[in-house]
Amino acid sequence: MPDMDVALKDAMQIEGAIGVALVDYTSGMALGTAGGSRDFDLTVAAAGNTEVFLANMRAIEMLGLNDSIEDILVTLTGQYHVIRPLTGRSGRGLFLYLALHKTRANLALARHQLRRIEANLEV
């Protein structure tokens, strides 16, 4: 089972990756990051996307849906942002956040690769 650093490096190999973070959604803090830039602060993105994730969780609860989030996609004009909660016991309360260049990424393949990384991650 890959550890967090290996998983983050694997996620950065996804075509079009800008940055990736493993985020604790109870605090909004990034436990680990890879990629990003001076103009794209992954710790700020982690905190902001925690709000997106929690809002979706509240909506599911308010609607009384007996379902869970597989992933959340935010599509910007130039980027895709994918939020994928960890489902393993060791990953409860965490999600993977991946930012992609829209013109360079294959979204279906990126989601598939992120699903594989999430399934194998041990935290």
Rank of each mutant, 00 (worst) to 15 (best):
L65E: 14
M62Q: 12
V44I: 15
L65K: 01
A45E: 00
D41C: 15
G48V: 01
Y80L: 10
M57Q: 11
E61L: 03
A47E: 09
P85G: 03
V82R: 02
V52L: 07
I72L: 11
V52H: 06
A46V: 09
S37L: 14
T43E: 09
V74R: 12
I69R: 14
I72Y: 07
F53H: 01
E61Q: 07
Y80S: 11
A59K: 08
V52I: 00
R38A: 10
M57N: 08
L54I: 07
T33I: 01
A45H: 01
Q79I: 05
V52S: 08
R58F: 03
I83W: 00
D71W: 01
Y80D: 00
R58A: 03
H81M: 12
A55W: 01
G48A: 08
R58M: 05
I69A: 14
V82Q: 03
H81I: 12
T77P: 10
S68L: 11
E70Y: 02
V44Y: 13
D41F: 15
T75K: 15
G36W: 14
S37V: 07
F40A: 12
Q79V: 06
G48I: 02
A47S: 15
I72N: 12
N49E: 09
V44T: 15
G36D: 09
R84Q: 08
G64N: 07
E51M: 11
P85N: 00
R38W: 03
R84T: 12
T75G: 01
E70T: 08
I60C: 05
S37R: 13
M57G: 05
E70M: 08
E51G: 12
D71C: 07
E61R: 07
G36T: 10
A59F: 02
V44R: 15
T43W: 04
D39R: 15
E51I: 08
T33A: 02
N56L: 10
F53W: 14
T77Q: 09
F53N: 01
A45Q: 10
M57V: 13
